[in-house]
Design a protein around this nucleic acid. Sequence first.
DNA 1: CTTTCAACTGAACATCTGTTCAGTTAATGT
DNA 2: ACATTAACTGAACAGATGTTCAGTTGAAAG
Lengths: 195, 195
Amino acid sequence: MARTAGSHSDITGPRVRAAALRLFARHGFAAVSMRRIAGEVGVQAGALYNYTPDKQTLLFELMQTHMEDLLADFARLESGADALARLEAFTRFHIDFHSSRPDEVFIAYMELRNLTPENFAVIESLRGAYEDGVTAILRQGQAEGTFALPDARIATRAVIAMLNGVNTWFRAGGPLTLGQVGDIYWDMVRKAVSA
Amino acid sequence: MARTAGSHSDITGPRVRAAALRLFARHGFAAVSMRRIAGEVGVQAGALYNYTPDKQTLLFELMQTHMEDLLADFARLESGADALARLEAFTRFHIDFHSSRPDEVFIAYMELRNLTPENFAVIESLRGAYEDGVTAILRQGQAEGTFALPDARIATRAVIAMLNGVNTWFRAGGPLTLGQVGDIYWDMVRKAVSA
DNA sequence: CTTTCAACTGAACATCTGTTCAGTTAATGT
DNA sequence: ACATTAACTGAACAGATGTTCAGTTGAAAG
């Protein structure tokens, strides 16, 4: 095979995904053309089709990769501890992970409606798996008597929605460090679910 | 003036806005063409320009109207009571108002990036005014000693983000009434901010 | 040096985009 | 009955859209 080493595909592929990610997050999937992504990479639009079968798949794979990364990192959190410690670890993890990937997070929440029904179902099930993990922590706390919750499923969504809000205002280099933001939110999360 | 009474403009105008609202919420501003809006109304695309100078203004006015309605209704809430009662009233109001206007809410949060800078500034300042109202309640509670908050501004955003989450899952006719949802969220909000 | 072929170009495809506007229609006031 | 004119049509505008593909390029394998 000619051009195996020194091939550009190892470089261009990631650059295509990076450009698509950036542009989809800034302007929205529907507002970004394949030509614009190609321009960002420095190639013609046709060349993109060496790296994705179509625009829809490009979006879907960005979202799928993001959700799988999220689940993989979430699974690494300590599961032996008591519910309070686990919820604190989750709270800080969620804030850290999401604030380190603002573009991915934005797309994963905003572009769901631009997925085909099949692709949507895949992303939704990944999101459901993440929620399940949080709900499990809350139910453990209910069983231990540490948490008092009218509904663990709704509390899960409430906590995640609250933490997602961080990404709308937090900017690294601002007055607060991520650790301080974690402290503030953990204080509110802890109280919100406590007995 | 001919065709004053019996004119269609009193009917078509609202129908244009309603169709745009529905379609923007479902598919996104960039993905909806003027021809598609016109089709929904039963009119040719050119006729839309009797009701809006351009597509951008159509979006902007939907968002502006929504935010002004929100602020007007928010201003009607009792302001004489103690902070706890005011925060409860706000919590239930926010849930009620937002769940009664899912399309408006969705657009107001999702289509900010499709506004021109001037229009964006207007909507942002309306949103800021709403946040200010909530922050005032939280600061009153801090002064009264009822609430313990590391940061009233951040707590405002946390509470609003949490309550906004309701719209992603609540459907009228489901297992819970809006009143029950209000109870569940008020329980969490109250505990989250309490001393 | 020659062959190979992954990576890419550039043009073409049919279709859609927001917006404008001369012209048509029909309900209204006189 | 007639003139007025708000409301709307339908065609046109210049350009953008996702996607395909025959052909070019140039680095590496033999």
